[in-house]
């Protein structure tokens, strides 16, 4: 610190100067100290697997055999790989089918939960119960519900004279069933996050809006939504990340041999399933590494588009 060369202070004021310096150190240094634990753990346990995976993706790397450096060959092959693009299409399709209604529902639910009503705690705790159940259990239960011969849904539909649907056999039905599983699990969770953010919005704003004669709907659009912007960005990004990494639901939806292919015509194989298929069924670790890198890239691109969209839709500042 060169600025300590300042004129020598009289003895009685050394303590404050020392304090000032300490305070400056606190001001400059403590942000780094605050973020340090995260980055230390990330540096040890996050960065290595990441770099390793990228390194592997530049090789022909059978999990158990000899490795050979191939440069960007895996990536070139990937770009021409119909199965990869099919998985990308499915992932985005299921993401849209599941996320759009999920967000609308979650916002609606959060607004409702934000009202005054009886048994508040019961209902508020109730919405997170789906999240308590493990994905594996959810999928198991939902496969039972969507089973062709003894499933609940077909039983109910049968009551209306609809013939039993093989839910896993068609693209539309499998996407619908998988989206339902995802939404059942995550709508309440997002609603709760929205709710927490809504509770932090000062009530005076609503009162002011009410004085201006704004209806409840109008209040929602002009007060609630703009103030939820940070939270909306947060939930969109986490949903994108979760959506692109969707894995267990489609995997367990049609169990048995070859489940990793996501249906007989790969109609619901997601990117992460394709990653695992390459890594642990075909044991092509290098190629799987390239898929991982592409997933990463894809999430990044969609996230950026989304941040831009949310900014435009909900106003910017």
């Amino acid at each position: 610190m060169s600025d300590t060369l300042a004129p020598v202070q009289p003895a009685q004021t050394t303590r404050p100067a020392w304090r000032v310096r300490l305070s400056r150190l606190d001001h400059k240094g403590s942000p780094y100290a605050f973020v340090a634990p995260f980055f230390i753990f990330f540096g040890i346990f996050g960065a290595f697997p990441l770099i390793y995976t990228f390194w592997v993706s530049l090789h022909d790397w059978p999990l158990l055999g000899e490795h050979a450096f191939t440069g960007l060959e895996n990536y070139q092959n990937l770009l021409q790989d119909a199965q990869f693009w099919n998985a990308a299409k499915n992932t985005l399709g299921i993401f849209v089918v599941s996320t759009v209604p999920q967000f609308a529902l979650a916002l609606w639910l959060a607004v409702t939960l934000n009202r005054k009503f009886r048994a508040q705690t019961l209902f508020r705790v109730g919405v997170i119960i789906p999240n308590v159940t493990s994905v594996a259990a959810v999928t198991l239960i939902f496969s039972m519900i969507f089973a062709k011969s003894f499933g609940l849904v077909n039983w109910v539909l049968g009551g209306f004279g609809v013939t039993a649907i093989d839910w896993a056999a068609h693209t539309w039905s499998s996407w619908l069933a998988i989206s339902l599983m995802v939404d059942w699990r995550w709508t309440g969770y997002n609603a709760l996050i929205f709710l927490a953010a809504m509770q932090a919005i000062p009530k005076e704003l609503y009162e002011a809006a009410a004085i201006d004669g704004a209806s409840r709907t109008r209040q929602f659009w002009s007060v609630t939504l703009p103030l939820l912007r940070p939270t909306l960005i947060f939930t969109t990004i986490t949903s994108i990340i979760g959506g692109v990494q969707l894995f267990t639901e489609p995997l367990l939806f049609a169990p048995g041999a070859g489940a990793i292919q996501g249906g007989t015509t790969r109609q619901f194989q997601t990117l992460t399933m394709y990653l695992i298929e390459n890594g642990f069924t075909r044991f092509e670790f290098g190629y799987a590494g390239a898929v991982a890198a592409m997933i990463f890239l894809l999430v990044l691109i969609i996230s950026l588009i989304n941040i831009w969209l949310v900014r435009r839709l909900v106003g910017s500042d």
Binding site: F38, F39, F42, F45, G46, F48, P49, L50, Y52, T53, L63, I237, T238, I241, Q245, F247, T272, L275, I276, G279, F285, A288, G289, A292, I295, F296, V299, L300, S303
Partner: peptide, 17 residues
Amino acid sequence: IVVLTMMVPVQLGTVPL
């Protein structure tokens, strides 16, 4: 970087970890 760490598919990291 924090946000980017979320975008890494975890499944493949098992072997290096």
